[in-house]
């Protein structure tokens, strides 16, 4: 019997979430290379149509687990359900997206079944019979190749955007219903109200030109040179998260996974290192310029033009040049 790869499918508001489809695409590739079978695993309540849709992808089967208790994500219930399935089925690999919900869940699962977990992977390599996984460390500045030395299932979470849903192959897989007895699981975490942060005054999604500032600016008083540059360009000001966390600028100017997503003509990043959570919010800018003292800053990997230098020199000089 061949080994199995399981992929957890997350969903919300009746839709399969994109990171799960990315995981599925990666799972397809790995299964094909290794000659393993691939199975999509979906938990929820009244989600038959989603399972049917998954069955149209290239998978060997879709495991559907429905229970009222699974209607909304709860760490205790989800962990119990997954623990049972993984312990019984013993897949080789369990793939899931590195999304907030799984950041909450995956380590709990790993501890519950005492299995290894590698988080936030950006890819893998096949070395002989083994898979080696690649993940980022040190604020995305370094990559690490890591290998499980533990028993299966290996649990892996995949960074958003690490693979493309365009690679997803269609096929036909049978939906297999699975029932679990979750009645004894006690829900310790009570879910209270959820809300969307009131949309701020500043909507940067339509901005054509953006000057973005990161922790390299060092303190609030220094923002003046950024304001002057933005004014000379007629651009909006945006920021990375630490600038907002320090309350140097308001939250509605934050770009990234927990901020706004923008696609301006020009994104001028000053003193921003280029962490993945920032990049997801601005990578679609037409032209990206990075000013950073560190030649190894990851922002240079996605920028069109780079200046390795001190923003306190470059920015005022640029403002002056633009005013000429």
């Amino acid at each position: 019997m061949s080994e199995k790869i399981y992929v957890l499918i997350d969903h919300g508001e009746g839709e399969i979430r994109t990171p799960s489809l990315e995981s599925l695409a990666l799972g397809q590739r790995m299964a094909e290379e290794a000659g393993f079978s691939l199975h999509a695993l979906i938990l929820g309540n009244e989600i038959g149509p989603l399972a049917e849709r998954l069955g149209k992808q290239k998978v060997d089967s879709v495991l559907l687990v429905e229970d009222q208790k699974l209607a909304n994500y709860d760490p205790d219930v989800y962990c119990r359900a997954l623990s049972e399935i993984l312990t019984e089925d013993q897949p080789y690999l369990f793939l899931m997206g590195h999304i907030y919900q799984n950041i909450d869940l995956a380590p709990k699962l790993a501890a519950a079944i005492n299995r290894g977990l590698v988080t936030d992977c950006i890819g893998y390599r096949k070395e002989g019979d083994d898979f080696v996984f690649v993940r980022q460390m040190f604020r995305n500045k370094l990559n690490a190749d890591v290998q499980f030395r533990s028993e299966h299932p290996w649990i892996v979470t995949l960074q958003t955007g690490a693979t493309s849903v365009d690679d997803l192959k269609e096929g036909s897989g049978q939906v297999v219903e699975r029932s679990l007895d979750l009645s004894a699981v006690e829900l310790r975490r009570k879910q209270l109200e959820a809300f969307e942060a009131t949309q701020g005054k500043v909507d940067l999604s339509q901005a054509e030109l953006i000057v973005a500032v990161g922790r390299g600016i060092k303190k609030a008083e220094n923002l003046k040179i950024i304001e002057e540059l933005a004014e000379a360009l007629g651009a909006e000001i945006a920021a990375s998260r630490p600038v907002v966390d320090s309350e140097w600028l308001t939250r509605d100017r934050q770009i990234g996974s927990s901020g706004q997503t923008v696609s301006p003509r020009l994104y001028l990043a000053c003193g921003i290192s280029g962490a993945i959570q920032h990049i997801v919010g601005m990578k679609n800018a037409q032209c990206i310029v990075a000013i950073n003292t560190d030649p190894n800053a990851p922002i240079f990997n996605i920028a069109t033009y780079g200046i390795v230098g001190d923003l306190f020199e470059i920015v005022p000089a640029l403002t002056k040049k633009l005013k000429e």
Partner: peptide
């Protein structure tokens, strides 16, 4: 020894295909 072991084989600077034109 009862903890699942994971080995870091190698740490390195990421190799990137598309790099900025450095002025």
């Amino acid at each position: 020894s009862s903890i699942p072991e994971i080995e870091v084989l190698k740490v390195y600077f990421p190799v990137v295909e598309k790099k900025a034109e450095i002025l």
